[in-house]
Design a protein around this nucleic acid. Sequence first.
DNA 1: TGAGTACAACGTACGCCGTACGGTGCACGC
DNA 2: GCGTGCACCGTACGGCGTACGTTGTACTCA
Lengths: 253, 253
Amino acid sequence: MSDQNPLAKSLQLLWEGLPEPEKGPKPKLRLEQIVAAGIDLADADGLEALSMRRLAEKLGVGTMSLYRYVPSKNELLNLMLDTVVGPSHTRMTSPRLGWREFLAITAHEGRQLYLAHPWTLQANWSRPVLGPNSVADLDLFMTGVKELPLSDREKMNLATVLDSHVMGAVRQELLWQKAAAESDMTDEEFWTYQLPTLERAMESGRFPTLAQLSEDTFDGTNEETFEFGLDLLLDGVEEEIQRRLAQGGADSA
Amino acid sequence: MSDQNPLAKSLQLLWEGLPEPEKGPKPKLRLEQIVAAGIDLADADGLEALSMRRLAEKLGVGTMSLYRYVPSKNELLNLMLDTVVGPSHTRMTSPRLGWREFLAITAHEGRQLYLAHPWTLQANWSRPVLGPNSVADLDLFMTGVKELPLSDREKMNLATVLDSHVMGAVRQELLWQKAAAESDMTDEEFWTYQLPTLERAMESGRFPTLAQLSEDTFDGTNEETFEFGLDLLLDGVEEEIQRRLAQGGADSA
DNA sequence: TGAGTACAACGTACGCCGTACGGTGCACGC
DNA sequence: GCGTGCACCGTACGGCGTACGTTGTACTCA
């Protein structure tokens, strides 16, 4: 790792943590403490409540002391992200699982993770995290789909596509929660207040198709949507591999 | 619309715009100008560059004057969002299109929209937009899938799932662009700097499956991933409707 | 024509934010 | 026992969103 590399510091922090100092006074904190406290705060009060000042206060240190451990808030977020996908959470599924079950479990665990840490969806806008836990997660995924008759490149695409679906579904789910919370109302109240406007819109004749939809069109739960899309994807995979098996060999590496 | 409704103001702004004043001096600006300037700014320099001060400066007015038109920055973002999905952009596809083509075109146009206005992916974390253009968009979608033998509720799920896929894929795409830009490097440089760390990780034996992947595993383009997932979804839909048609009637409303 | 009034413009200020900088004092190697 | 390198962190700067209150304009009505 040459000093020329401008990402060296960030990557080192992710993969090796902070080097132990030898000379000076004992550090009051450990990097892991800061990261853990950050995750706690973001889980509890949302990403917008995670400020360096609040975090420092929570840890009982001065604000600027945090910068002895972490070069910037952005870097802290990267550490938080990689921590949160940590091994305790990866699907410890028995390795002998059919690919369909494996993909379904992966998706469901992903959903639980995003629901437990909603800030992850807003946070990683800054930089693709290539930390050890993320990489381990990808390794686990690739192991789980080893037997699928797809090329490695296609498997990679599958990983991305599955994650997109999970993120997108959870995002929808959180959107309504947040909106209601910000306006100091419950989900239902929020809907209720929107209803009159929508009803007037329906009656205006500008939306002929919407106006004719059945009553329960918008009653679906977020989980239902999630499962619906997951089934579509898995069916799509199934069909693709049937097609390949039918016409002979697979081109998996 | 009673005054009790705490969302009345927001909804009115979206659906009816600002009421014309009769008494006082002529307003210097129009609401649409502000919204358009906001979109311009966010398109050009990113959402983080869109501050009320900069926006006001761009428009040649004092900062606080903007609040004569828009109650808050959040509300402005909602207006921007609904504007950007405006009718000029909706697929003006001939109504007699097969469902598969229709869904594919919808997805592709969505992708173009998100790529043209990347900030939309970060912005609508505040409130689900139920503006006239968004509703019109949904109406158009529902018209396009009218013939599909799915229930209305399932069609709604399909709309959400498709959008999730599009958003997720574009998000991945933008992520790398942004990361590189923030570090003042190109995409390739960014990769290059990460490589040594990854190679060391591969050689560590901690990621046995990843270490064995073929060379081109990570060479896929974002567009390729997008198409891959889209095909999976559409194949999934195809299979589902085959299944239904095989066993008799559909339960569409 | 003059008074009253509603409303547009916007300067100032408050309390947040991330973080650059530099001083203070601790703990170890010599 | 002292020099040195580092931990801690107070202060300050330039941003942010926006609450509040003043000023001046353009209309209605007497």
